[in-house]
Design a protein around this nucleic acid. Structure first.
Lengths: 332, 332
DNA sequence: CTGAAAGCGCTAACAT
DNA sequence: ATGTTAGCGCTTTCAG
């Protein structure tokens, strides 16, 4: 350690930097002075190697360019920093294979814990063996097999509220559009919609994820004379594509077709009329995940818990029933 | 190393895992088998400690929730991974003090290089002493003091194209709105606008950054009877706030006021009419920054270089001159 | 209260 | 081709 410039032993420097044991004020001062002059910061790797303690947690998200996940990470990072932790963040780019790779790579860092939003339900198969005691908190999406601490939103009830709203506005049919039912969120939202008994007939189309997503099926349904009276997109990326499609087809919202979305984004309030949407408490989810992980890291006991956060639903103009115009009249 | 399960020495395991030296096929196989069974991955920290080589680069951005920076990081991460590098990503949350803290923390990791998008021009003061030989590539924003490798977009020329377009459409006055001229981007864009000689009278308002941003000054200018004929937002966050303000004031675009923005976002193509905007080549910028850093990491020679990437300008309806309607008529 | 020395998991020399 | 050993920078006993 170069900080022997202070003329003390390495042990003393270590003690000062970790405010350990009792170090005389003058010695401490000399050390701090040398540290300042040299611009020294401890080598965190060597530190962990010897002490066994990590102050490092790994974060795996499906896609960093998705504002929702970016916000999740950013919130997490701040919370972690306040607790003295560093974050190693990796994005799986919506690719299960890449997720598996990152998951394995991240173990090389020997993190004290992991927070992961999985690509799909098969997370458990991808969580490398030998992860041993490392605590894992899963957020947002629920793996097929249990055994993890869980933090997610109340997808079903929130989606059901939109479904009931559409029913009460008198919409007779609604096309629900999601990426893939392989993702628990999508599945839960769809289940919630179906569970909400009402006059509306719901039907779902899966369009796929990322670059592989195809709107063809939706387009042909909308071009059809007997097109649905409403659209409900189950995530904001889908919502955006769907909204552009509606515009391209020259359909007016809500006169020709009503429009609602899960995941509220800025643009939904900018367009006219603004879009009815479910807002997810992303920051809360990040905080909850962090707190859960902290608990796990300081005390390995207890069975995994599952926590559900409540979403906010905002009804806006895009799902308003046109006064005096029943859907049949227009279609005729 | 627990992989002595293979019945070989630690050195052989290391050689196999790094495909070093010559290892007999059967020994290699035995090692790989044991590694597989144990789910072992090397401790990257111990590895670096001994070898001195890092395969780690640090990335510092002002704000991860900004889709532009998130895309930058995501692109970077993919490029890094292909080259066998890991990334430690930190967000400064638009706070110079936090940036300084993160910059110093990140040194604890002893990264092989750093890519940073600084909060403001005073980066050099914040780059901790003792960063010694670590190569640094600065992207997007240009520090006041030089000496760094630089990758940015051609802010001035791109902004000038918008300025000339507004002039040729006959707009006599334009209020330019940016966060702060302390940020090089904003300064360069504003300089570019002024340098573009034309009939339009340009004026700038700085609204501040993040939560501290205040639109009051802009609002009073817009409420004024002699409000400007056009608005030009110098970044997408400002553009969004500005667009909402315009809507709140009941001004129609472009009939009452024209609207253009730097940084193209999805919503700009969704609103009606769509917004004239400058699109920045973020992915290209990430790739260029990465390549520059790789060069620096493998060969510390040469003087710092500066690279400018070209932006794409798309003219849309938000800046179209209303047929047969001169601004004066409407204001009267 | 301070220093000397061992050792964390790994790789680079060197020895076999 | 394989094994042995030293030591990277740090923290942790344990002596002084």
């Amino acid at each position: 350690m170069v900080a022997e410039r202070a003329g003390v032993s390495v042990a003393t420097v270590s003690n000062v930097l970790n405010n350990k044991a009792s170090v005389s004020p003058d010695f401490a001062e000399r050390v701090l002075k040398a540290v300042g002059e040299l611009g020294y910061v401890v080598d965190i790797a060597a530190s962990r190697l010897r002490s066994g303690r990590a102050a490092l947690v790994g974060v795996v998200v499906p896609d960093l360019t998705n504002p929702m996940f970016a916000t999740f990470v950013s919130t997490l990072e701040h919370a972690a920093r306040l607790a003295g932790f560093d974050l190693v963040v990796v994005s799986a780019r919506n690719d299960p294979a890449e997720e598996a790779d990152r998951l394995s790579r991240i173990r090389s860092w020997r993190p004290a814990g992991l927070i992961v939003i999985p690509c799909d339900g098969a997370l458990a198969e991808r969580l490398p063996i030998g992860l041993g005691g490392t605590p894992v908190v899963v957020a947002d999406r629920i793996p097929d097999s249990g055994g993890f601490d869980l933090v997610a939103v109340d997808n079903g009830p929130a989606a059901a509220r939109i479904a009931r709203h559409l029913g009460s506005e008198g919409y007779g049919s609604c096309l629900v559009v999601g990426t893939s039912l392989a993702i628990s969120n999508v599945r839960e939202r769809w289940d919630g919609i179906r569970a909400a008994a009402g006059p509306t007939y719901f039907e779902i189309v899966e369009i796929g994820i990322g670059d592989a997503a195809r709107l063809d099926a939706v387009e042909s349904r909308l071009a059809d004379a007997r097109r649905p009276e409403a659209l409900f997109a189950l995530d904001h990326v889908t919502a955006l594509e769907l909204y552009k499609l509606v515009g391209r087809l020259g359909l007016r919202v809500p006169a020709d077709i009503a429009f609602a979305g899960f995941d509220e984004m800025e643009w939904m309030r900018l367009v006219s009329p603004p879009v009815t949407a479910v807002r997810q408490p992303v920051e809360d989810m990040a905080h909850a995940a962090w707190q859960r992980l902290v608990k796990r890291m300081e005390n390995d006991a207890a069975t995994p818990t599952a926590r559900r956060l409540e979403c906010a639903v905002t009804i806006r103009g895009s799902t308003a029933r046109q006064p005096g115009a029943s859907r049949e009249d227009e279609a005729a």
